[in-house]
């Protein structure tokens, strides 16, 4: 790679000491950026420079850096996980930007996702929604025979595509109402179509929706901005299914739940 290919960028990054303090945008110029760097490597690069200069590096989250864990976040130039489709921030590369660009970097913003520091937010609201019902209860013991519960291929595929949700929270970040409907709907759909999910089908949707509301997520305006930024392209159709499951769980009679 030739030396000319290195970029210099103007970065405007959210700086916030902790949940209680007010935050502000801070500007940094950073040169020597290769187009081959991932976005997070670029931030690592900035943080190394800041550390060398005796300044405080920016706090941001990441883990797998290959788009499977859901740890990374960031609203980049106004779009959750930055430009491009079906990718998490860790899969975004600096070749998506040009020399001299200004890049605005903000945390996910939602009442339910308070800022911990700088760009890191507390997403444990999602964990509490999962604890409220995003599971199937099974008796422990040896694993059941794989073919003893037949699942048609198209149903299995549908459940699997919903299950690819990595819980990153981009749906909440992108939604004008900071609604968690896409996340909750993916988790509800994943189980509601499978035979294993039937036993707790009604209580699951009730409890997960109730928890979603306790966490102060907004309501859905059906704009589907969530699906558009989802790194796993979870379709909006799941939200329609969640609405249906919620209606069903309230009005279909059952003696036990």
């Amino acid at each position: 790679m030739s030396a000319q290919a290195l970029m210099t960028l103007k970065l405007r990054i959210w700086r916030q000491k902790d949940a209680q303090s007010a935050g502000r945008m801070e500007e940094h110029e950073l040169s020597g950026i290769s187009e081959h760097m991932s976005f997070l490597e670029m931030l690592d690069f900035l943080n190394e420079k800041l550390t060398r200069e005796g300044k405080i590096p920016f706090n941001f989250e990441s883990d797998c850096r290959e788009g499977i864990c859901g740890s990374c976040s960031l609203v980049i130039n106004g779009i959750a996980h930055g430009p491009g489709k079906a990718k998490a921030t860790c899969q975004l590369h600096m070749r998506s930007f040009k020399n001299g660009d200004t890049i605005c970097i903000e945390p996910w913003r939602a009442a339910a996702f308070p800022v911990i520091k700088d760009l890191a937010v507390d997403r444990s609201a999602f964990d509490r929604i999962i604890s409220a019902g995003g599971y199937v209860s099974v008796n422990v013991g040896s694993a059941p025979e794989g073919n003893s519960i037949p699942v048609p291929k198209n149903v299995a595929d549908y459940a699997f595509s919903s299950a690819t949700c990595i819980g990153c929270g981009a749906c909440v970040a992108a939604c004008k109402n900071a609604s968690a409907m896409l996340f909750v709907s993916a988790k509800v759909s994943q189980f509601s179509v499978l035979p294993q999910g039937q036993a707790e089908r009604k209580s699951r949707v009730q409890n997960m929706v109730a928890q979603m509301e306790r966490e102060q997520f907004g309501a859905c305006t059906n704009e589907a901005e969530c699906s558009a930024v989802c790194p796993k392209e979870i379709p909006f159709e799941n939200i329609v299914r969640l609405n249906r499951e919620f209606i069903r769980s309230n009005f279909s009679p059952s003696e036990f739940e």
């Binding site: 609203v75 130039n77 106004g78 903000e106 004008k176 901005e225």
Partner: peptide
Amino acid sequence: LSLHNRRSRPERYQNKKNSGLSRR
């Protein structure tokens, strides 16, 4: 609903764009 939705995002984005890929 509008009040509830506003409360769900107390701190606005400095820079927010539409993806251009949705129904919005």
